[in-house]
């Protein structure tokens, strides 16, 4: 997700993120949507929506319009997509329940954050931080279920393993960033987004790998 921030009087360069969108799988994978599993179709739709958001944020950034509400809206879509993918990937009723609880918690937390702590227009990362923590827990849950039922000889051939690995690396890497985001952005914005962009590029590459591994045709 590109975040063309115009807060604090600064405008951040979108170069890394636009490049990332170019290498994301949107255009290439359109014709093989049918060949993907249900979970990967959800991811595909999410990637398409993210692409549209990228476009919108780029345009708004060009015209110096605050686009942070899109950034915040993206949290919901992203967490919803990740939760749905995990929900359909888990065999365990317990972990499916955890997904449901996290979804409810995330919505309540976001609303509380919205009404009592932050507004839509400034950069806020509380939700992102909460999302990161929950996704990491869901990834660990997925790993636990994998270790309980060793049915795959080659895990690296499983798209879901790639996705969980991509998310755990991305969200673990950005957890620290978003925890202190306000302070860090105020002090030095360059490294903040540089680190984020590197992790985001890595995540997008993993999405591509997941689509390649998950093709059924």
């Amino acid at each position: 997700m590109q975040t063309c921030l115009t807060v604090n009087g600064n405008e951040y360069t979108p170069a890394f993120d636009i490049g990332m969108f170019d290498c994301s799988p949107n255009s290439y994978w359109g014709y093989i949507l049918q060949s993907l599993s249900f979970a990967l179709r959800i991811l595909f739709v999410y990637v398409i929506i993210t692409g549209l958001f990228e476009l919108a944020t780029s345009i708004m950034s060009t015209y110096h319009i605050n686009n942070l509400f899109l950034f915040h809206a993206h949290f919901f879509i992203e967490f919803l997509a990740i939760s749905a993918i995990f929900f359909f990937s888990y065999d365990s009723v317990f972990w499916r329940g955890v997904v449901g609880v996290f979804l409810v918690f995330f919505v309540i937390f976001s609303l509380l954050d919205q009404f009592y702590f932050d507004a839509w227009d400034p950069f806020k990362a509380n939700e992102r931080y909460a999302e990161g923590l929950m996704v990491i827990i869901l990834c660990v849950g997925y790993y636990i279920s994998l270790l309980r039922r060793p049915i795959h000889r080659y895990l690296e051939r499983q798209p879901m393993f790639w996705l969980a690995s991509g998310w755990i690396i991305y969200f673990a890497g950005t957890l620290y960033l978003f925890l202190f985001s306000k302070e860090l952005l105020a002090m030095n914005r360059f490294h903040f987004w540089q680190i984020h962009a590197i992790l985001n590029i890595g995540l997008n590459i993993i999405y591509v790998i997941s689509f390649v591994k998950g093709r059924r045709l």
């Binding site: 620290y176 960033l177 490294h191 680190i195």
Partner: peptide, 10 residues
């Protein structure tokens, strides 16, 4: 610190 922190997490 930012780079090291993120690198450790990754």
């Amino acid at each position: 610190l930012l780079i090291i922190g993120s690198a450790i997490m990754v």
